[in-house]
Design a binder for these strands. Structure first.
Length: 551
RNA sequence: UGCCUGAUGGUGUAACGGUAGCACAACUGUUUUUGGUGCAGUUUGUCUUGGUUCGAAUCCAGGUCAGGCAACCA
């Protein structure tokens, strides 16, 4: 086990920090704001933060960045915890920025006492205007020169609820001419009368991200605070706060967020998809949310494998959706139970089979020698796929056609004798004879056929509903597509089809992963019941024949 | 027209001055009671111009392109 896997740039930094003795052990954190559901982009961050700790023998905190009560809800807190656990990670401590509100308030007072923060009565518009632009320095205002005593009194007044929402803010006094806009006297506290999901109505002032995040890291003694690229300009302020307060020096490092082809990754856009009814819910199996992917049948293993394979770097990226599909196929191929399901049926009558019915056995998983077998009833009337019969077969067609023979999976070799059509010219029934010497596992017929078909005995068939999903959008790169992203929604991202399934399926436990032979991987939907079985297609099988036909 | 990031096959990601490798995708062939899986193989790449060096994807300088930064959001 000495695979020399190269380290990503963050692992590189950590291993140097550990080697130099800068830290004895590391502590990371995953810090979501509980204002929505987690998606595959968060999974990248989760796997990174928890993975870093695991790799270097450290720990990871789960911290909710709950400093904006207007957007946050307990429902999201619960879903985030569920998703992180489902992905297979355990956090050392469950923390909340709101747990530090008292401490953060004291930090702000300290800054005021050092003459490094002031209360500003300006409106949001005035402040924005006074900040200047990236190329024009900002200008100060009279409030910037308030005395320490006055600032102390006013800030206490803000906390005590003496002022209306938006009437005053606390600002850091740094540099209005800084080339970094975030250093132009950033806001530290705002007055906002909103009910907080944890602190209730105890506070009417709340710290801004920049005054909460770094200090929360510091309070928890986070060694490596990893976030995405857009926070790079915030780092100067992150460091400034820690330095002025003289507290534990956590450090921030940034990596590029995940983008994927054929989907969107922003909470805002995902929320729109839900609210405007393009999908059913946050856990709609078409959504790139963790809950949606779970419902669709993705496994935690496959998602972790995906996050491992995409790597960590600082350049913008867009990952092929096919990599995710590869990861889930690779895992499911090893663990999925094989079953036979027919979606677009035509009848296959075995004219010389007069035993009524016969119980056959079929392996649950050819990849797993210990996977066992299941019973599959065979009879003289079967359902097979319409696509598996061709009236006038082409040269490379290995399936059924007049005079052609195929193997019925785990059963017999049959030869097509004739067929029937309805008035519209559609094939309705195919007649065939079977070779009794060709029984699966004890074949003495000496016949060799190229094709093997899946099938379901008609009188034993169980009705099921299949949700066949396709990509949510029909352009690869949504970020470079003109106009509204909703214009590119794939109108046929969901195809519901009724199907006939072999009877074993009705008795399988709820959380079993399936491969419906020659169709794809399926997982029972959360809305599935004993009376109405519903399966979601996680991903299709690779289909060399479909490719061949396109040529 | 300021500051900050970044630029390696179609897509990702390595190579830390010394053979541009790996994965996905694509394409061949082979095996197969899933046109699945497995196995073998093929194709495709260092943004640009100079410089340093025996030697540059890597170091230096200029340019080009892409992304980010001016919410009482995180």
């Amino acid at each position: 086990m000495s695979e020399e896997k190269s380290l990503n740039f963050i692992e590189e930094i950590i291993s140097q920090d550990l080697a130099s003795g800068k830290y004895a052990s590391i502590l990371t954190r995953f810090p979501p704001e509980p204002n929505g559901y987690l998606h595959i982009g968060h999974a990248k961050s989760i796997c990174l933060n928890f993975g870093l700790a695991k790799h270097f023998g450290g720990k990871t905190n789960l911290r909710f960045d709950d400093t904006n009560p207007a957007k946050e809800e307990i429902e999201y807190v619960d879903s985030i915890k569920e998703d992180v656990k489902w992905l297979g990670f355990e956090w050392a401590k469950e923390c909340y920025a709101s747990d530090y509100f008292d401490q953060l308030y004291l930090f702000a007072v300290q800054l005021i006492e050092k003459g490094l923060a002031y209360v500003d009565d300006s409106t949001a518009e005035e402040i924005a205007q006074q900040k200047g632009t990236p190329t024009v320095p900002g200008t100060g205002n009279a409030f910037r020169n308030r005395s320490i005593a006055e600032n102390l009194e006013l800030f206490a007044g803000m906390k005590a609820g003496k002022f209306a929402d938006g009437e005053k803010v606390l600002r850091a006094k740094i540099d209005l001419a800084s080339p970094n806009m975030h250093m132009r006297d950033p806001l530290l506290y705002r007055i906002k009368r909103a009910h907080h999901h944890r602190t209730g109505d105890a506070w009417c002032i709340y710290p801004m991200y920049d005054f909460a995040h770094g200090q929360s890291d510091s309070i928890e003694n986070i060694t490596h605070s990893v976030c995405t690229l857009e926070f790079i300009p915030h780092r100067a302020l992150y460091d400034w706060c820690i330095e002025q307060l003289g507290i534990y020096p956590s450090h921030q490092y940034e990596f590029a967020r995940l983008n994927m082809t054929y989907t969107v990754m922003s909470k805002r856009k995902l929320l729109q998809l839900v609210q405007e009814g393009f999908v059913e819910s946050w856990d709609d199996p078409r959504m790139p949310t963790i809950s949606g992917m779970r419902r669709r049948g993705y496994t935690p293993e496959s998602i972790r494998d995906f996050c491992e394979r995409i790597g960590i770097a600082k350049r913008e990226n867009i990952i092929d959706f096919s990599l995710l599909e590869f990861c889930v196929r690779e895992h499911l191929n090893k663990v999925a139970m094989r079953r036979m399901v027919v979606t677009n049926p035509i009848k296959l009558v075995i004219t010389n089979f007069d035993k009524g019915e016969e119980i056959l056995h079929s392996e649950n998983n050819p990849e797993d020698p210990n996977g066992g077998t299941r019973e599959v009833p065979f009879s003289n009337e079967l359902w097979i796929e319409r696509d598996d019969f061709m009236e006038e077969p082409t040269k490379k067609y290995f399936r059924l056609g007049p005079g052609l023979s195929v193997r019925l999976k785990s059963a017999y070799i049959v030869t097509c004798e004739s067929f029937e059509k309805d008035d519209a010219g559609n094939i309705t029934t195919v007649y065939a004879t079977y070779n009794p010497q060709s029984k699966s596992g004890q074949d003495t017929s000496g016949i060799h056929v190229k094709g093997t078909l899946h099938w379901v005995s008609a009188k034993h068939a169980v009705s099921v509903l299949l949700n066949e999903y396709d990509r949510l959008f029909n352009v690869e790169d949504l970020s470079s597509a003109d106009g509204d992203f909703k214009d590119y929604i794939n109108p046929s991202s969901l195809n519901r089809v009724n199907a006939y399934a072999e009877p074993a399926l009705a008795n399988d436990p709820l959380d079993v992963r399936f491969q419906f032979l020659r169709k794809g991987y399926f997982y029972q939907d959360t809305k599935s019941t004993k009376d109405k079985l519903i399966f979601n297609r996680t991903v299709g099988l690779k289909d060399a024949w479909a490719k061949e036909q396109k040529k």
